[in-house]
């Protein structure tokens, strides 16, 4: 697997799980909306991370490891926050 696939595959699996979970949330009360936003944020960040790695490879400027770790951690934090709140 190249570096894009290494990032993209787990991110896409995570996005698929969270999107399925999104449909089970009752978004009428404000708490439900907050959980929805946590999962949606994780999805957006995951998409952004895939885009970042893809573009870094394309332009020949390797993505910095710190950036990738922080970005990945943010995805996990949002996802965990969503599950905890749910």
């Amino acid at each position: 697997m190249d570096s894009i696939e290494k990032i993209a595959v787990p991110m896409l699996i995570m996005q698929a799980i969270s999107v399925v979970f999104l449909w089970t949330i009752n978004t009428l009360p404000i708490d439900g909306q907050t959980i929805f936003l946590m999962f949606l944020s994780a999805d957006f960040l995951a998409f952004g991370l895939i885009a970042h790695v893809w573009l870094s490879n394309k332009t020949g400027t390797p993505a910095r490891k710190t950036t990738l770790y922080v970005w990945g951690l943010a995805v996990v934090v949002f996802l965990a926050a969503g599950f905890v709140a749910a």
Binding site: S41, F44, A51
Partner: peptide, 18 residues
């Protein structure tokens, strides 16, 4: 690249809204 920025911006907006 635009989508990457838009996603980060979107997360910021979602976070502030939450």
């Amino acid at each position: 690249y635009m989508l990457e920025l838009a996603m980060i911006f979107g997360v910021g907006m979602l976070l502030v809204s939450a």
